[in-house]
Design a protein around this nucleic acid. Structure first.
Lengths: 212, 212
DNA sequence: ATATTATCGATAAAAGATTATCGATTAGAA
DNA sequence: TTCTAATCGATAATCTTTTATCGATAATAT
């Protein structure tokens, strides 16, 4: 139940989504084989992943209780206790994230957004005020926010990152195409489109090669 | 020079960005140690990564030629020959991607966008027409497009995915929070926010735990 | 000219992740 | 009730990725 691998951790949200779908359609239990087929993983891998987050094992011939799994994965991923976050850079991408209602289900709530543009009347897609950058530090400290989302253009990303850290942010989710440099003790997750695309392109190349 | 690991592949775009920065500032060569420090990797890992894409090795006491590395990584990642792509779902996220000019540098050009909304005069952020879905198949076939980008709401993602495959798309870059099911021979890269967030949250938890 | 030191590449070791194997269990059929 | 087949968990084997080690090389200082 402790020390789940990075790889497992990334597969869990996928399982959870699928299990919720199954749950909606009224199914009560599911086998590791069925899950594995759906994702193209091996059944053994699925069983290992599930075992690492759920104490309630599966039953031979029946599989796992879907409800129990949903509960355990939700708990493990911390989706039950929501973390506050701020977002800086209310352009198209920032607005898209602000308008996305699904984050709450992932244990994340964007509580405020900031932008350098001095438009005093600006509002985000939910109709909430967009604050000036100068207000960030105070708000982060008052609400004890740990997570900062960066959706500014590349050239100001490092500067925003530094401001966030100064304000007390401990984890940065970076959507800007730069490699941020941060001190020890600060978590960064780069949403690196180029890296994703590199993976996809390689897969595509393999497929095309296989075709001939 | 063949068979680069998935992990290496994902690090390469980061190196490339950094090397370009260094190049801009006039530096001619760089050591694996310097690169490693910048990213928090080990120097051995950086050397292995670079060796797997560049025939021109480094020199003791000096390091690697920045220009040569940039050339070789660009070549390896296929950034020199641009692939066409289509995008379906011109909402906020779709618009953000359509408006992002950086893709060209990553060997990708979004040549057309589609949406279900029947607005005959709609244009994307670059001022190009947004087509009706019914036009997709023909266009994909005529231009021999291999890559499809999905930025529609969750509930229509699988349907769009199926249409793309029917039209001949071979690689799907999915930004919708669903697990697409595709037949063999089709590449999928899910831009899974939940998985990213899971990683970030775990890092954050580790940091906070370490603090006490 | 020689010594020192940062750096490299290659190989070996360790760590991490996936897959294979197999006996045990249980639902459902015969 | 007994048999069959699907499924599980645990352990072992394999494969992949990262890290460690070490001799060789070249720039710089002595």
């Amino acid at each position: 139940m402790e020390s789940v691998s990075k790889e497992t951790l990334q597969r869990l949200p996928g399982y959870l989504r699928y299990l919720k779908e199954m749950n909606e359609s009224g199914i009560k239990s599911i086998s590791s084989t069925a899950i594995a087929d759906r994702f193209g993983f091996s059944a053994v891998q699925v069983r290992k992943d599930l075992a690492s987050v759920s104490a309630e094992g599966g039953k031979p011939k029946t599989g796992f209780s879907i409800e129990a799994l949903i509960e355990d994965i939700n708990e493990f991923l911390g989706y039950n206790n929501v973390q506050g976050a701020i977002l800086v850079g209310v352009g198209k991408l920032g607005s898209a994230l602000l308008g996305y209602k699904g984050f709450r289900n992932y244990g994340l709530e964007i509580v405020a957004s900031f932008d350098a543009k001095k438009d005093i009347n600006a509002v985000d897609p939910m109709g909430r005020a967009i604050y000036d950058m100068s207000k960030m530090e105070d708000l982060v400290r008052r609400l004890c926010i740990n997570i900062g989302i960066i959706t500014v253009p590349a050239k100001s990303a490092q500067e925003v990152c530094d401001l966030m850290i100064k304000a007390g942010i401990k984890a940065i989710w970076n959507f800007s195409p730069v490699n941020l440099s941060v001190p020890n003790g600060i978590a960064v997750k780069n949403e690196d489109m180029a890296a994703s695309l590199a993976l996809l392109s390689q897969q595509l190349a393999d497929i095309i090669k296989g075709t001939h």
